[in-house]
Design a protein around this nucleic acid. Sequence first.
DNA 1: GACGCGCTTTGACGCAGATCAAATGACAGG
DNA 2: CCTGTCATTTGATCTGCGTCAAAGCGCGTC
Lengths: 245, 245
Amino acid sequence: MQDHTVHVQCADCPIRHRAVCARCESDELSQLEQIKYYRSFQAGQTVIWSGDRMEFVGSVVTGIATLTHTLEDGRRQMVGLLLPSDFVGRPGRATAAYDVTATTDMVMCCFRKKPFEDLMASTPHIAQRLLEMTLDELDAAREWMLLLGRKTAREKIASMITIIARREASLQSAKPKGMLTVDLPLTREEMADYLGLTLETVSRQISALKKDGVISLEGNRHICIPDLDRLLEEAGDDSDGGMLV
Amino acid sequence: MQDHTVHVQCADCPIRHRAVCARCESDELSQLEQIKYYRSFQAGQTVIWSGDRMEFVGSVVTGIATLTHTLEDGRRQMVGLLLPSDFVGRPGRATAAYDVTATTDMVMCCFRKKPFEDLMASTPHIAQRLLEMTLDELDAAREWMLLLGRKTAREKIASMITIIARREASLQSAKPKGMLTVDLPLTREEMADYLGLTLETVSRQISALKKDGVISLEGNRHICIPDLDRLLEEAGDDSDGGMLV
DNA sequence: GACGCGCTTTGACGCAGATCAAATGACAGG
DNA sequence: CCTGTCATTTGATCTGCGTCAAAGCGCGTC
């Protein structure tokens, strides 16, 4: 399979995003154009509840959404963080398997499911592109399993910061000037649900990393990284530095 | 996309398995036949080390294999359990991302990667079938994230038993007669790596479930389940009973 | 400026599960 | 039958993180 991970300007989407219609000069794109539409969500709004009928698939254009599992007794685990260009929904499944929630104001580019599936059946590139994206997500999920199962609270925090930094960087075409900074798009509680911790532990570990000079804070959500290698060390990953998404 | 999850007799593979060549009457199959070959592994043997070049993709025919991440300091997390019919490898990637190890004697049905990728590029059904299988794996990985992040040791053990029971059941065409039994194909240490626990905790929780009458043991590896609902309750899942793989 | 509200930090304490250590079984080989 | 090896169980103790509780802080509204 060829690499279609090119960032394309998908018609009038406000930003460049890695869309399912990567072969933008081909016929598929015009067909996708015909069945697509946009939806906006406010911060905190639920896009779909687990178990609901899924009438569409789509991708995030701007803003951030999360996928979460919730147990009856209220324990929550975030199982996915959707940044711009990420795909939502599953062709071939009728109902949603997780809650999807906008954590910031968000715009999605949607396709009604049935026509999308029809189009997918007739145009090979779309399935191939989706396969590629799904395999990336699977890798990310497996890396996250290592974090959840084996890392300490401090390592979890450090890992989260590097992963979000990497993903934010990959969305920006321009190289950042000056010190590396990261915007955490999540509350402490959401980070806790992401990392399998409590919000108190998240807060304590962030404070500890700050005290030890690994990071510094500007306000509550903005993090500065004076020494990336130091942070990577704290994350406890093995050598590669994490080439995965 | 149509559902190709039919179990097919893939040529001379010794068992029925859900293969990439689900449309067995079509032309693809004969092409797949031409590039396929078999490999056998002994229990404990490593199939691929993380970072190695991947020369093939394939699927498990008999036996069981595991995918694991290992940190420098020796902490290990299993990120996948491969039962017969499960696919191994990633089209479009040169090197393995995890260690793949046979935990029992195992036979794999392999395809050299390059010809497989070529075939995939020219025959849409294969990519569509792989997409379906990958989405199932992604769902399973996300369910596992909930387990790793939020479940107690006892719930983890109960969940593991139900998940392995379900997967073993799906491989058998015949309905089991009499009491539900499960073969655990893993040592206590492997279970611990799967569940993000230590082997001592695994042993203690299995003993506790036995003492409480939730399960009973025949030898070390064989588990009897007198009351499946009771076990499901202990697993702490929400209602659905887990339709996912 | 005072108030309320949501988010975050910090402190004190308890416990689930990790760690360290030893005993028990299950087998295969001599 | 003895012995070494490896998997498993069980016990004793320690500790990282969860739990409960109380401030602190930013921010919009009255």
